[in-house]
Simulated assay, not measured.
Amino acid sequence: MALTDIDVQKQIKHMTAFIEQEANEKAEEIDAKAEEEFNIEKGRLVQTQRLKIMDYYEKKEKQIEQQKKIQLSTMRNQARLTVLRARDNLVLELLRDAKERLSRVVLDVDTYQELLDKLVLQALLRLLEPVMIVRCRSQDLHLVEAAVQRVTPQYMVLCQKHSDIQVDQDAYLVPSAAGGVEVYSGDQKIKVSNTLESRLSIAALEKMPEIRRTLFGSNANRKFFI
């Protein structure tokens, strides 16, 4: 039985509808698959960027924390140095005050003469040279000459030897010197300084721990004391 045009048209229309339905279903499947892959990729990218952002801010936080530690350490060191400078300045002021007091000691002639005798004898006994030259301030020349005359017999008794002891009348200690003497070997290559400043420096060096302890108290971090 031959198909009429109407039947053919119906079959064609049915087939077309079927093909369109399959095409739509396939398109929906492709869209769904694409949406799923998009969401997966989007989630991956979001997670990656989130991790990058977290890592970036974690590093920033560590950098800031490190900078804070460095700044705090710097501030502590600066504060410590400021305190140490203030302490050193106080010690220097104390030593300057001590030197000023020394300059007043020499005003008492009897006391200063007795001190010069001891300083000259001590320097001679430290040097023990065949020829020794005693140098002093120009204003102390007569006092030092008297000291040399007095202590020379003591020196010879103590060391059991004769030395030529001279008082330098050509060169003197600097005008700013507080007092005392310097004693040189005959060739002036060896010197013993027994000026008031040198004695003060030696005493200050020996007593510095005690001075600092008196002024600033004991160091809490120090475990051993000599």
Rank of each mutant, 00 (worst) to 15 (best):
Q47D: 15
L127H: 07
D88P: 02
R104N: 11
L102A: 05
L3Q: 05
V148Q: 00
M75I: 08
K33I: 10
E197N: 09
E35A: 15
Q154E: 07
H14Y: 12
K52E: 15
V181P: 02
L94F: 07
R80V: 03
A86G: 14
I6H: 05
T4P: 01
R222H: 06
K62Y: 03
K13C: 02
L128E: 02
V151E: 01
E206Q: 14
V120H: 02
I6A: 08
L215N: 03
Y184K: 03
I6F: 13
E28P: 01
M1I: 07
A17D: 14
L116K: 01
E37G: 00
V83M: 11
E35L: 11
H14E: 13
V106C: 02
L215G: 03
A79N: 06
K99T: 09
R80Y: 10
R199H: 08
G180S: 06
E29W: 05
Y56C: 10
R96M: 06
L173Y: 00
S185I: 08
K207W: 08
L173W: 01
G217P: 06
K10D: 03
E100A: 10
M208N: 09
A32M: 12
G179I: 01
A98W: 08
Q169Y: 04
E197M: 10
V109I: 11
K189H: 12
Q188D: 02
V134E: 00
I6Y: 08
K207Y: 06
R80E: 13
E22G: 11
K33W: 14
L72G: 05
A178L: 15
F18C: 04
N77I: 09
D88V: 06
V46I: 07
Q113Y: 10
V174L: 11
D108H: 15
A204F: 06
I70C: 06
C159L: 04
E35Q: 13
K60Q: 13
Y172T: 01
S198W: 05
L128R: 15
L173F: 02
Q154F: 00
M15N: 12
I30D: 14
L115K: 04
K26A: 14
L124A: 01
K99V: 07
M132I: 05
K10E: 12
A146T: 04
V106K: 13
K59H: 09
V106S: 04
E210M: 11
S218Q: 10
I133P: 03
N219Q: 12
K118H: 08
R80I: 04
L116I: 09
E58W: 07
N39C: 00
Q160Y: 00
I202E: 14
T214G: 03
